[in-house]
Design a protein around this nucleic acid. Structure first.
Lengths: 353, 353
DNA sequence: TTACGTAAGGTAACCGCTTACTCAAGGATC
DNA sequence: GATCCTTGAGTAAGCGGTTACCTTACGTAA
């Protein structure tokens, strides 16, 4: 593999100037077709691949967007579900970028190194999509002074950056409303995640919204608290039952915990959904395969990825445009754990009403 | 966001030449610490982020590696398992690249556009990892004339490029041997994927290896043929049973089909594993959650990603080095569908013996 | 015939870094 | 005191494209 050939060699071989070569490659119009042919032929003879860096330097635009995401702990012992979120976002981002001829550079921040990595990546790209928890708040702020940045989180808006999120609260409101209106439940319990999780907070808020709308009593706090793991969910529900709690429906802060809830209820010889309905949140792969299949809420992960890149590209195109904040609707996925029995269940939008 | 600042501004502000700035950023040694301090201060005051393209142009090295993968059909209606393979590879690649200060550029080839995309990406990177089926053979060949290329496939070696794969055949041999030696089966059926799938072919070959080693009769062809989907697997096994086939063990070409096999056997009122043992291949997420949990073979996807980037970096460092071909071992994952009953099952290496 | 519009294509100045050469100023060596 | 190394730092030539600004040739209208 000899050194890659350059535009100069192509120009020489086809007997034109580099400007002409560049123009032919760029638009291909406005040239005698003889010239164009010669240039194209020379380029292909030489196997010329234009240098991205050179092009990027000259155009002040690398045509690369960066995606920064958190490397959530050790990849996987037995659990590979959670990363799915990130993976789908990556796919979406790739799709949106490729659609306009850009490419996506990915980087996972691990523990301390985040800031450095972020700046290194920033230099190679025209802008960054930064997923929540991949970078400290103030690093994000510093970064966004220098390059276009879109923040992608699962809830709430923030500082001065473009921002995109999914409507967690609306999703949880929708699933709770489903339990109330379709199945007539009035005695519902919320199984929360870690107390410091904003996601869990959002979802609990949605749960409360639904109760309020239905005129039911709104609790001050979640009936049970887990930690977003199946084991934690199981313990929390077991404890709830042990204390004499007997809700007719358990709205779980995520699917993992719902799995745990299922196990705890089974252990207590309670049938789902006959005795107690259970719902989850996230729609991880397993949700479809447990028995009973889990009614849950899906976040539009791929769409989040796509949309975030689109926001970013807009920002790059016009750095002065007003800041944007987008919230994508979540989707209610009705299966059987809520009491429905459809075979291939209907899925409905669950956005803000 | 004003225009990004440059090395010239940093040099001016700190009263040194650009060469000094460049050197301070590069190694940081060999300067009076006063100078270093001034440069660093100026850089941080200005919020300078060195331009990747400029650096790449000057060094003839973008410090970006590309990863080309196939966008397997429509992303997902109800099935999100299969992409997992790619996602894990991406993660692995990212990890290996970041470890040495490179970044990963990803691009999914869709239908026709593959060649163009590949060349565009090639221009922006120092080399490419190309996953099987993301690009036509001759495009790969053309590409590898121009830039360093590592081919990542799930089986067999090929042309002139560096090559990396997982030992499918060995994996299937191991799982079949497990059924024979541990569970004493002598009547085994193989459920193949699409006839034109090399993966399926490899796995069938491994199946036959095991029979041969055990002195059992080796069939000319698979007992049943599916299409790598659950539905197809179900149909194929149902048909096999209808024809009077009564194997004591069904070795499936992948997990999806194993899921189908499970369904078909259940429909026929046969118990798994008591009446018939079933095994899969891939270890998709669901495999752990079906009842009985699926005994299967895991491909080292993350490791494939890591190793492929390492091969690529080696190739970039030394374009003249002899071509390399690496085969990573697969891993037998023993659960219950084979007849084992371990609670947290042992997983053993399943490489070439 | 002349002046002018237009299409085709060339010239060369960047873009923001890196790095091979230089150079100057001290010690160390003899 | 002359010579040689070291160390610290500057000069400027690329790297391979893009593109603003020209030139040239050819029609065409006046």
């Amino acid at each position: 593999m000899a050194d890659r050939s350059t535009i100069y060699q192509v120009a020489e071989r086809s007997g034109v100037s580099t400007a002409t070569v560049s123009r032919v490659m760029a638009d291909g119009r406005g040239f005698s077709s003889a010239t164009r042919q010669r240039v194209l032929a020379a380029a292909s003879d030489l196997g010329w691949i234009p240098s991205g860096p050179a092009r990027g330097l000259a155009m002040r635009r690398a045509r690369i967007v960066g995606l920064l995401f958190p490397d959530l702990g050790q990849p996987s012992r037995e659990d590979e579900e959670s990363p799915l979120f990130v993976d789908q976002v990556i796919r979406g981002a790739e799709r949106a970028a490729t659609a306009v001829g850009d490419a996506v550079l990915i980087a996972a921040t691990r523990c301390a190194s985040g800031r450095e990595l972020a700046f290194a990546v920033a230099g190679k790209t025209d802008g960054l999509v930064v997923m929540a928890r991949s970078l400290a708040e103030d690093d994000i702020a510093a970064l966004s002074q220098r390059v276009p940045v879109v923040v992608l989180a699962s809830h709430g808006a923030r500082g001065g950056q473009d921002f995109i999120s999914a409507d967690s609260r609306g999703g949880c409101r929708a699933i709770t409303t489903h339990l109330i209106q379709v199945h007539g439940h009035t005695d519902l319990a919320f199984l929360a995640g870690p107390p410091d999780s904003p996601d869990s907070g959002e979802r609990f808020a949605g749960f409360c919204d639904a109760l309020r709308q239905a005129g039911l009593r709104v609790p001050d706090s979640a009936a049970a608290v887990g930690d977003f793991t199946a084991a934690g969910g199981r313990r929390a529900v077991a404890a709830l039952l042990a204390e004499g709690g007997r809700p007719r429906a358990v709205v779980c802060g995520n699917d993992e915990m719902a799995l745990g809830a299922l196990a705890a209820l089974r252990a207590a010889r309670l049938r789902v959904p006959a005795d107690v309905a259970v719902t989850g949140f996230d729609d991880i792969a397993v949700a479809r395969h447990v028995r009973p299949a889990l009614t849950t809420v899906r976040q539009p992960m791929r769409e989040l990825g796509e949309k975030s890149v689109q926001l970013l590209l807009a920002r790059i195109a016009d750095p002065e445009a007003p800041r944007q904040s987008v919230e994508l609707p979540t989707q209610l996925v009705v299966r059987r754990s809520c009491g429905c029995r459809g075979r291939s269940p209907r899925a409905g939008r669950a956005g803000t009403p």
